[in-house]
Structures are given as structure tokens and as C-alpha cells.
Design a binder for these strands. Structure first.
Lengths: 177, 177
DNA sequence: CCGCTCATGTAACTGGTTACATGATTTA
DNA sequence: TAAATCATGTAACCAGTTACATGAGCGG
């Protein structure tokens, strides 16, 4: 079972009974862009999960219009629990792919002013994420979903860490001259 | 040009003249697992970059044994500089994919003790990364590569942020009871 | 001489992506 | 009544992956 499948399982657990469309929208509107939530990924994955009995489907016919409502099964809940329980794969705690950090390896290529421009841009773009993420946290808080709020706050910790790092670079470069 | 291609370009700039094998090894030994550094990805990408004149190749024949040494061209340097300079794509500052954070959305599924097990596991696995990353920083420092050291320290900021977050969850869950 | 590293590549696969097709329902 | 949203899917594509094949050079 892939992380995508398990995440879908989790979404159906929280939102269910719901359609694949609702699951997809959850990915589309999420501030993370790791998965696009494209129909081409979600619909087949949900069908797969239903075929393997992690989800059960009920066909709801509403005057000619048909939609499939999915609910998590006991088997699905068990798989979800197993995913959350130790041991995690080592990859779970590994460093993530940060495009700004990746670029920073090659900062020696830039002159003093261009390096400053790099740091300004990074700080601005990262800073712009904070209100977005705060709003997401607030949204979950208002919905009474404490754990999603806690999870989303993790994204804030991440961005704040990356911002601190940018400021640390600035200080270091001042020291280096 | 993809991030992978530009990263390869940067590696050749730092390590060059070097073989595709050396570039691949750089990815393989990196603490980031975002790209595996598989031959199937690196060799074709390097060939592509050479074909488009971002790299130039010199065939070095050493008694029947042939190896291709690549060097970055002026055109390659220019592309690399452009990549570092503002504006960044919005995706550069977006939150990354953190498997632990993704799991945390569904923590309500677990009981009190299991939640504690989750946090312990996360804290231990993340904590284990710190000495690894410190060693990497130290390695770059000894090599006199300040900017790689600075970039790698960004990974430390990230892990420390994620650890702080885990501790924040612990406190919050104590408050919630 | 055995196993390891250096070195270059290809082939099949995979887990997604974008784009397209279709149609009902809701809202401005 | 036009546009947006809900809803379900498929098809072509793509950027990677794993696994395989091959062979030279080197250290124990």
C-alpha cells in the first residue's frame, strides 16, 4: 500500500461516506502540492481500494445521475492504524526535498548582490506562506478537527524553520563579508 | 529544464570535470532520497545536457577503457545562474511532503498509548537524523565548501523544526488530556 | 582470483501527470 | 441561459524507478 492510497483511506475515514470527487478536491485544495489530486490518480486508486475491500461503495442513484459513495471498512481502519503505528520506515524521518535548499548548494556562483536577491526572494516567498497556513489551521480549528489542525501546524513549523535558516545564512554571509 | 537537470548541472560545476558515475554517486550518498541517483536517470540526463550544450564532454581513453568527462559550459553556467535568481516559482516555497505530518492528520484514530508510541517513534527517528546531518555539514566544512555546508545546515533546521513540532504536539495532547 | 569499485548504458516498469470526454446540477 | 461546480472516468504521456548487462581496474 502506497502513501497515496493510505492517505486516501484516511480522507475517506474523515469525510466518508463521500465520492472520489470529494477526495480529489481535498488534494487539490490542500496547500501541499505533493499530489495533484488529478482524476487520473484518484479514481483508479479509490477503485483499487474498494476492490481490495479497504473501502466499500454504495451506488446512489439520484434521478438518472449516479454517484458512488465510499466508506472505510473495518479492514481499511486496521490498515490505517498499522500505518500510524511504529515502526515507521526510515524514509518517514528523512529530510524532504526543499527547492530553495537545493538551489542554495550553488550560491557560490552568485555575486554579493545576487546572493542578497536570492535571500530576499526566499524570505518573501516563504513568509507569504505563513498567513495561508495559519488560515488553514484556523479552518480546521473552527471545524473542530484538532488533529488536522495539529498536523497543519507542522507545516508552519517547517516554514518557520526554513525562514530561520534563511536568516542564519544572512548573518553568516555578513560575517564572511 | 527540470530541477534534476539543473541540480546535475550544479554538481558538474562543483565536481567537474567528472563522469556521470560521479554525479550519480553524489545523489546516492546524499542524505536526501528525493532522487535515487539511478543510472537510468543520470546517464540520459547528462547526455541530454551535453547535447543541448549546457555541458561539454571529453572522451578520455585510458588503455582500452573509455570514460567521458563532463565540464559545464558558459551556457550551462548562465542557466544555473538564472535558476538561482528571482523570481522563484511559487512551488519553491511551498510546504514539502512530510510522511510523519501526513500520518498525523489521522491521529484521532489512535488511543492515548498508541498516540504516545507514534510521538516516541517520530522523535526517535527524527533525532537519529541529527548526527547524520551534522556529520555531513562537518564533511563540507572540512572540504572548505561553505555554501554546501550552509545548504546542508538547512536540512538540520528542517529536522529541528519537525522535532519541535512533535514536542508541541506532546504538550498539546497533555493539555487535551 | 575473488570481490569491490569504477564506468556506461539499456529495457521494462510504475506511479503518477495533463488533457480530454461526457453529462447532470446548481448558481448568478 | 450561461457559467461554474459536481461527478466519473479514460488515454496518452512522462520522469523517474528497478533490474539487468557488460566490462575494466584494483586491493586483499
Amino acid at each position: 500500500m502506497s502513501d497515496l492510497e493510505l492517505t486516501i483511506l484516511g480522507i475517506v475515514w474523515k469525510k466518508g461516506p463521500c465520492t472520489s470527487y470529494v477526495v480529489a478536491r481535498e488534494f487539490v485544495t490542500s496547500p501541499s502540492s505533493h499530489w495533484s489530486g488529478s482524476a487520473g490518480a484518484i479514481y483508479p486508486a479509490v477503485q483499487r481500494l474498494a476492490r481490495r475491500r479497504y473501502l466499500k461503495a454504495e451506488k446512489e442513484s439520484d434521478r438518472g445521475r449516479t454517484r458512488r459513495l465510499y466508506t472505510i471498512t473495518e479492514r481499511g481502519l486496521e490498515a490505517l492504524r498499522q500505518w500510524l503505528l511504529p515502526p515507521f520506515p526510515d524514509s518517514a524521518a528523512q529530510i524532504t526535498f526543499d527547492p530553495i535548499r537545493t538551489r542554495a548548494y550553488f550560491l557560490a556562483l552568485l555575486g554579493r548582490d545576487q546572493r542578497k536577491a536570492f535571500l530576499d526572494e526566499a524570505e518573501e516567498k516563504l513568509g507569504a506562506q505563513i498567513p495561508v497556513l495559519r488560515a488553514e489551521c484556523e479552518r480546521y480549528r473552527r471545524a473542530g478537527d484538532s488533529f488536522s489542525e495539529i498536523a497543519m501546524s507542522g507545516a508552519l513549523f517547517e516554514i518557520e524553520g526554513r525562514l530561520e535558516w534563511i536568516r542564519a545564512i544572512r548573518n553568516k554571509l555578513v560575517d564572511l563579508g
